[in-house]
Design a protein around this nucleic acid. Structure first.
Lengths: 251, 251
DNA sequence: CGGAAGTTTGACTCTCATCAAAGTAAGTGG
DNA sequence: CCACTTACTTTGATGAGAGTCAAACTTCCG
């Protein structure tokens, strides 16, 4: 393992990803270093930057080190639907290796630190490290599971349930990459409009639903920060089970 | 290419899949025959059979030769959300190679003819035929695109738009595997309840919306059969663009 | 301090859900 | 081939959840 300062830094950078993967596969040093080698191009996106837009040609795959990203679509009248959120440890534009052009907006939701891995080196990596390829395909499949579960929410759950469900999901995913503090408190860099666009309801109704959850003592909101006061009940009302995330039992 | 009767049959069986893939990659004889070799176990499912259920261990991957399947989820009060439909040429349980257990219901929606490919041979095939692996990963990624687009529908489109959009999508997908007849007419083995569970609206409202489309001269419905009388307007009102399906221009 | 961004509340409206029930077509067994 | 069951479709009436419009309020930030 690389031990000099730069190397150590890189290791920390990819740590979130491998923390997630470690539940799924045996992460070997060979694997981490093979991955680390392609992580040379550290990039920064400003809040709001488009990483790709529909129709754009993919140029690279990204590993988020810090910050949040969204994948979203728009209707012609400007309404936005957020498909999912990407958090540290998540990979963006994984299907750049498969499709020429993007079909969704991928956007930096906060300031983002990431590694940009050009498509060619990325493909080569997958070919040379089949184990790693499987692990990364796993993360892509997990992403589809998240989208499917959201589809169930939008199709068959009430606004209140959707909100509670999303909060439980975000909490669980942040937990795995160790971004939840004591008392189920975590940074949530989303405005109520962002939440609305993810939940498929209006911003105003989102506000009412959240207010109600606060009044009921289920959550506590602060500036960019969320605390789930009654995780058990939140999971009950939203029927949240983390099965669809396929995290290993102990994480 | 195999030319005896049995061989020809197999070739026809996998034809839908390769017809779809041919737009994406150059389909070689080596590829088709490698695939054909694992397609020995022809299976039949009765209408309504569960192919896998949430929590079940995956046993195989399936290539649909004839019939429709659904992937769906349930809420605890029994409401169903159909995630997507699988048609001839589609692969079921592709992520059996990645996950141990299923998280959704995969169900035969009609009588289904399929090839069951046990996971091990399937994984071996992917390893030996990287080209084919990419092509099949492409179909999986396409599937996620379909789910994402449906999420946009459920989140930000009216019931009328959702219905029109789904019809346009099904039409387009069936077209690629040559299952659309003249005048945009095709077999649609879905009850209005099935449509409702896909569109995320009630069955009764689905009926009203469809009736209205019929009255407006946009569609014509018969027993298990659908005709899109005014495809252009259907696409307009639902803002349908087939970009997200990533089909090649000419197909 | 002033403006911008985001949150909150109230009033009103509308789409869609629910309940109830009749109508229609398909399938089965006598 | 008819009676009967079952599955599916259609219509009406009513109500609830969520959307929209308008406006005040709060917080942040240069």
């Amino acid at each position: 393992m690389v031990t000099d300062t730069a190397g150590k830094q890189l290791n920390i950078m990819t740590e979130y990803l491998f923390r997630k993967l470690s539940g799924m596969i045996t992460v070997t040093d060979v694997m981490t270093s093979a991955f680390t080698i392609v992580c040379t191009d550290k990039v920064k996106f400003a809040k709001g930057d488009y990483i790709v837009r529909p129709g754009d040609k993919f140029k690279a795959v990204y590993l988020i080190v810090d910050g949040w990203a969204t994948r979203s679509k728009l209707t012609s009248n400007g309404a936005r639907q957020i498909i999912n959120f990407a958090i540290p440890g998540d990979i963006l534009c994984f299907n750049a290796a498969l499709f020429e052009t993007a079909e969704v907006f991928v956007q930096a939701h906060t300031v983002i630190d990431a590694f940009a891995i050009p498509i060619r080196p990325f493909s080569d990596l997958l070919n040379k490290q089949p184990q790693l390829a499987v692990a990364l395909a796993w993360t892509a499949a997990q992403e589809e599971g998240v989208v499917s579960e959201r589809l169930l929410s939008l199709g068959r759950r009430s606004a209140r349930q959707r909100a509670a469900h999303l909060l439980c999901e975000v909490h669980r995913r942040l937990q795995v990459v160790d971004l939840v503090r004591a008392e189920a408190q975590f940074q949530l860099p989303l405005t109520q409009e962002d939440l609305a666009d993810s939940l498929g309801i209006s911003m105003i109704h989102t506000n009412r639903v959240l207010r109600e959850l606060v009044r009921g003592g289920l959550i506590a909101m602060e500036r960019n920060s969320m605390k789930l006061l009654d995780l058990k009940r939140l999971r009950e009302i939203s029927e949240f089970s983390d099965d669809y995330l396929h995290f290993p039992a102990g994480s």
